[in-house]
Each structure stands twice: as C-alpha cells, then as structure tokens.
C-alpha cells in the first residue's frame, strides 16, 4: 500500500549494505587479499546475476520459453568490445585510439550501455515473431536467433570471425592506469545492481504487471486493455538489452571474446539459473546465479565429469522442488519480518 511510511532504517539498509559490499570488494582486490581467481569468480557471479534475472523477465514473468539468451549477450559483447577498442586502444584493425585512453574510465559505462542498446534492438528479432507465436514454436525461433547471431559473427572476418576478438585488455589496463582501482569489479557491481533495480521497478509497477497478466491469461490481458504486442516488445528488449550489458562486461572481464562462448550451451546455463531460482522471483534469480557460479567452481576438480553431476543435480531438483529455490516468491514474502529492516525499490 502506498500509505505505509518508510522508516530511516528501511530506507538506508540496502544502500548502506551495497556500499559496504562494494568497499569491501575494492579493498579486497586492491590489497591483494583476494587473488585474481577469487576476483574473477565474484565478477562472473555478477554477470550471471544479470543474465539470470534478465532472462527471468521473459521466461519467468512473461511465461514464454526463450532459449537464445546467449545470442543477445554476444551482440552486447561484440558491440561494446569493438566500440571500446576503437575508442580507447591502439589496434591493428581499427588503427590508433580515437579518444585518449585516459577517458576510458569515464566513458566505459556508455560503451557498455551502447552494447546493451544494440542487443535490445537485436531482441526485436524474437519480439516481433512473438506476437503470433508462443510456447514451443517461439522457443525454436529463439534458438534460431541465437544461431543467427553466432554464425554472423563467425563469418565477419574483420572482427576476427571464429578466432574471436581481443584488445579489451588494453582498455581495462588503461582504466587501471588512470585511477588505480579495480575498475572491472566496480563496473560489474554497478551493472548488477542497476539490473536488479531496473527489473524490480519494472515488475512491481502496474505497467510491468501487464507481462505477468500475459503469462497468466494472454486473451484476458488483451481484452482488459493491455497492449500485449507492445508489452512483449518492452519485455524482450529489456531482457535482451540487459543480456547485452552482461555480454559487454563478460568480454571486458575476460579481455577476449569468441563466438564459441555464446552457443546454446551458454543459453542453457542462463535457463538453468532461472529455473533453479524460481520463475518470476527476482530474489531467486540472484540467489541461484550466486549458487550456480559457486557450484561450477566447487566442482571444477571433477573436470569433465562436472557436466554429468550438474545436470543430474538439476534432474533431482526438478523432481523434488520443481518450482525452484524461491518458487515464484520474493524474500519479504518468505520472511515477512525482513520487511521491517529494508525496502528495495
């Protein structure tokens, strides 16, 4: 209800905790308490959170079955990588840097957002067919979109084709040189917080609830004045745009991208995280992305057997808790007492 007042505690808990977490991460990375491996795991955690919560918009809230998330991630990764290398680094293909590398620190978010916008427009590739198609048929279209993106990149020689594209390492080095902070950690953190914040705002508004109505009864939604086509475009573009942001961050964390990273396997990982956390639960997506990343790392000693154990765990999860960890609910619904301490909006 709108009439409830916000106490100072509720108002400041989340920002203070987030700032503290960011400060701890920066300190840990700068002082060498966290080695590069730990840092990269934490950054992949953030990227996975963006991927799973953005896919949750379409697969969870809107109830479609989109399985080409990695394709949009690839669009974002390539567009932002090419932009950042062209602008801030000397490169064999693009020549000398267009702007001074010292500007990289400030313009990096713009570059990442540009990748996101490009990916959002790529999302139209799926959004427009979704007007008339749904369910299994739309799933096939999303797989096709994934392949279209991947194969297109593989066949463009100028950006490395199947060999991949590199040079982003020089940009991240330039950022670290101009101000000695763990910049990629900061940007991944910012991207993650922004994603969760945007999605939460979207799905808690009357506008965003339109897509939940589409999930539960599309005909009723259309008849009760929800412009379903427009809402589908918004949902798909938001979802794929945020996947593009994740892709851009992913490319810059690794310093190298190749089309092989964005296969259907990667899309499947995104879907696994959504269903693990619970469809239509933002908290679930965040939690499952964290757990999934840790699980992948914890099972690393098993090497190739890992991909036997993880799917097996999924089978068991689907058997005994098909609704996922959170199961269509958010944290305050599971623990009503938490409401006293924080408010996230």
């Amino acid at each position: 209800m709108t009439t409830t007042t916000t106490t100072p505690l509720q108002k400041f808990t989340v920002p203070v905790l987030l700032l503290a977490a960011l400060a701890a991460l920066c300190f840990g990375a700068q002082s060498g308490m966290m080695n590069l491996y730990v840092q990269s795991v934490i950054m992949f955690m953030g990227i996975n959170i963006i991927l799973s919560s953005s896919l949750n918009i379409v697969n969870g809230y809107m109830g479609e079955f989109a399985c080409g998330h990695a394709g949009f991630m690839a669009v974002g990764a390539y567009v932002s990588s090419i932009l950042s290398v062209w602008l801030f680094a000397d490169d064999a293909v693009f020549g000398t840097a267009v702007l001074s590398p010292s500007l990289a620190v400030w313009l990096f978010p713009v570059v990442i957002l540009a990748g996101g916008v490009a990916a959002a427009f790529a999302g139209l590739l799926v959004a427009v067919p979704s007007f008339k198609t749904r369910g299994d048929y739309l799933a096939i279209i999303t797989i096709a979109a994934n392949y279209i993106v991947k194969s297109t990149i593989e066949n463009v020689g100028a950006i490395g084709g199947a060999r991949g594209f590199m040079g982003m390492g020089r940009v991240t080095k330039a950022m670290d040189a101009s101000l000695p902070l763990p910049w990629m950690m900061i940007w991944v953190f910012a991207g993650t917080v922004m994603t969760v914040w945007l999605i939460n705002r979207f799905v808690s508004s009357t506008q965003g609830k339109g897509i939940i109505a589409i999930c539960q009864d599309e005909i009723a939604a259309e008849i009760m004045s929800v412009n379903t086509n427009k809402m589908k475009i918004v949902a798909f573009m938001l979802s794929s745009g945020l996947a593009g942001v994740a892709g851009g961050l992913f490319a810059h964390v690794l310093g190298y991208v190749n089309p092989g990273s964005f296969t259907i396997m990667k899309s499947t990982e995104c879907m696994v995280m959504v269903y693990l956390g619970g469809m239509g639960s933002l908290g679930g997506s965040v939690l499952s992305a964290v757990l999934f990343t840790l699980l992948l790392e914890a099972l690393r000693p098993l090497q190739i057997i890992k991909w036997v154990v993880i799917p097996l765990m999924l089978v068991l999860l689907m058997q005994f808790r098909p609704e996922g960890i959170m199961g269509n609910r958010e944290l305050p619904q599971l623990f009503p007492k938490l409401k006293k301490f924080y408010k996230f909006k």
Binding site: T206, Q207, K209, G210, I212, A213, Q216, D217, I219, A220, A221, M224, S225, V226, N227, N328
Partner: peptide, 22 residues
C-alpha cells in the same frame, strides 16, 4: 478469466493499462 496468481487488487490495477499514462 481472472489472473489467478495475482492479487485481486493487482487484477484491477492491470486492467487499467489503457489509462496508464506513463
């Protein structure tokens, strides 16, 4: 044909999509 997993209040709110205005 109500949206059965959305509260009654939300059912009514979503039905005003046409008057959304933002």
């Amino acid at each position: 044909r109500l949206w059965h997993d959305m509260t009654v209040l939300d059912n009514i709110r979503v039905s005003q999509h046409y008057h959304l205005g933002y």
